[in-house]
Write a protein that binds this DNA or RNA. Structure first.
Length: 560
RNA sequence: GCCCCCGUAGCUCAACCGGAUAGAGCGACGGACUUCUAAUCCGUAGGUUGCAGGUUCGAGUCCUGCCGGGGGUACCA
């Protein structure tokens, strides 16, 4: 990557200056290469002279001058310019920029891919909402973040596995089954009440109806008696099916749907209990079994087996993460959770390390909750209250692309407000169309060129010299850096922001002829050589934007 | 009480490891269609980055204290 290249050049220059006795022979700061905000400050910059000034005992500007003088000649970047109060600004050579069009066009769609992960196995678990009701808008945020993060990490060279954890063993699941059975009986004419802590939502009637359609009265037990366990299993799998369909409509496909129940059926929990018991980390108190997490720095111990003998979700989660690291050997695991689970993070990490026996690379990515508004009215997100805004409804109203982009545009740790009225009413103002329109315009130009019988990839890139052409090339070159940034920070919103910047660069490029009133600025002109060069640029830019949209999980329309 | 996230333009949000004149979109105002689709472009206005200190060459970013919003602090998940 260019940044590393520049850092190397700076390091060499400083080394040379030290060897020549121009700078003192002491350790110097890392030459951090950043992207300046102001274009006047070049393509890249470093503040190394400022940070080196104190220990070197010289003025920043003086150090900057010395580095410029010892800077090696390079085909990619010009010698740096010194700028007050002590920055070094770097500019890419035009020749190299032009060549990149050739390079990108040859490497194709995966041009920006990296090898940061070196093929290591990484799992991303996201959404994992209880199968007790339809996904709501908040789950959509987790879905968009998790899925795009997975896509970017794949592009960054990791062997990524997407996973959904089905909580089908806990008390919420039991409440779901009880409610479903009550609805089932009601449909079949029995006068029974819904359970107190059940799920009153309308969707339960639909699922119960489906159970009747599929199985008739087959699951009806004696009045007052619970149904066969298969009733619950079938009901839950129907619910999971709904969830799977919603996510599929949202563009999310999982590699694994992992059932919590199997942790008990296949003895994983027993194994975990054995390990923790063997190291005296479990204690019986008040008829319950506790994990002595306070011994490991937690505020308190936590119950793993309730006094009635049922395991808590904490027990499940320990077993589950033991399974991820010790059984399936993921070298790294990322759990994407809503911020309301924050209190669970530390104790899960502690327990996982304790049971696996070494420090595990477990990262929990928290995203802040989505507040729903309808005008001025705040809508509470809760499956229990019955009234929820489902992800299905959101997709229906604004479309999958717009919904995804809306979520991806925000940093995970920013709370976001979602005004449903606005989302519907102003859907055409969603920036998603701005980006997709850029792609459609490129496709349209290329289509027209093909109709004219022009070659798209034969042009001479050295003819690309206009400021707006070079600006577009510069934007393309950012993609690998953005992929690296997202992979390192687990913050997909940088990619969404980049997509907007890229679209802007293209729109400016595309409208330059109108702005300047000069038809020779168009892509398709009377000059066949220039046209060929620009077509190659547009063709390359289109593939870069398409890749970007693909990583964001959005479509890249040919026309709009 | 304690722990975590947030507070930036009228609104929704950015700002890469502490960098240069804090940026976009929407909204407001004023321009550009004889088009390669104007779902676009160009321009103007809009800020004491919640408040008060501190650290340093430099703070929206780090530290301390307050104020405000959200979440957590269960034998719910």
């Amino acid at each position: 990557m260019i940044r590393d290249h520049i850092a190397d050049l700076v390091t060499s220059a400083v080394d040379l200056a030290i060897a020549d006795g121009l700078l003192p022979d002491i350790p110097f700061p890392e030459p951090d290469i950043e992207r300046p905000k102001e274009t006047e400050h070049g393509d890249y910059a470093t503040s190394l002279p400022l940070r080196f000034a104190r220990s070197a005992g010289k003025k920043p500007m003086e150090i900057a001058e010395i580095i410029v003088n010892t800077f090696a000649e390079d085909p990619i970047i010009f010698a740096p310019e010194v700028s007050n109060p002590g920055f070094l600004n770097f500019r890419l050579t035009t020749t190299w920029l032009q060549e990149q069009v050739e390079v990108i066009s040859e490497k194709g769609e995966n041009w920006a891919d990296l090898n940061l992960g070196q093929g290591s196995k990484i799992q991303i678990e996201f959404v994992s909402a209880n199968p007790t009701g339809p996904l709501h808008v908040g789950n959509g945020r987790g879905a968009a973040i998790g899925d795009t993060l997975a896509a970017v990490l794949t592009a960054a060279g990791y062997d990524v596995s997407r996973e959904y954890y089905i909580n089908d063993a806990g008390s919420q699941s039991a409440a779901f089954v009880e409610t479903l059975y009550a609805r089932y009986q009601q449909i079949l004419g029995r006068d029974v009440a819904l359970p107190e802590n059940g799920y009153p939502g309308e969707y339960m009637i639909e699922i119960a109806q489906k159970m009747v359609e599929n199985h008739g009265e087959g699951y009806l037990a004696e009045l007052g008696m619970p149904p066969d366990v298969q009733f619950g299993e079938h009901g839950t799998s129907l619910m999971v099916e709904y969830i799977r369909n919603t996510l599929s409509a949202f563009g999310v496909q999982y590699d694994t749907w992992f059932s919590e129940s199997t942790l008990y059926e296949e003895g994983v929990w027993d194994e975990v209990k054995g390990i923790l018991g063997g190291s005296n980390q479990l204690i019986e108190r008040e008829n319950a079994l506790w994990f002595t997490s306070s011994e490991l720095g937690e505020d308190k111990d936590n119950v793993v087996i309730r006094s009635d003998g049922r395991p808590t979700y904490y027990a499940s989660d320990i077993a589950y993460h033991f399974e991820k690291f010790a059984k399936r050997n993921f070298s790294r695991v990322i759990d994407v959770w809503g911020a309301d689970h924050h209190g669970h993070v530390e104790r899960l990490k502690i327990a996982t390390n304790a049971v696996v026996g070494h420090e595990c690379d477990l990262q929990v990515l928290l995203y802040q909750l989505v507040t729903l508004k309808r005008g001025d009215e705040i809508v509470r997100l809760s499956k229990r209250s019955g009234e929820i805004i489902t992800l299905d409804e959101l997709i229906e109203e604004v479309g999958s692309d717009a919904a995804r982009f809306f979520f991806l545009l925000r940093s995970p740790n920013a709370q976001m407000e979602f005004d449903l009225e606005l989302a519907v009413k102003k859907s055409n103002e969603n920036p998603v169309y701005y980006i997709q329109y850029a792609h459609a315009r490129m496709a349209s130009i290329l289509e027209r060129a093909r109709e004219d019988g022009r070659e798209l990839l034969k042009g001479d890139v050295n003819l690309l010299q206009q400021a707006h052409e070079l600006a577009l090339i510069r934007q393309m070159l950012r993609l690998p850096e953005v992929i690296e940034q997202v992979a390192k920070t687990s913050e997909p919103h940088h990619l969404a922001r980049y997509a907007i910047d890229f679209a802007t660069a293209f729109h400016i490029f595309n409208d330059a002829f109108k702005q300047l009133g000069d038809p020779s600025m168009k892509v398709l002109t009377d000059d066949p050589e220039l046209t060929a060069a620009r077509l190659k640029l547009v063709s390359t830019a289109r593939s870069v934007l398409a890749r970007c949209l693909q990583l964001l999980g959005m479509s890249a329309p040919e026309r709009m």
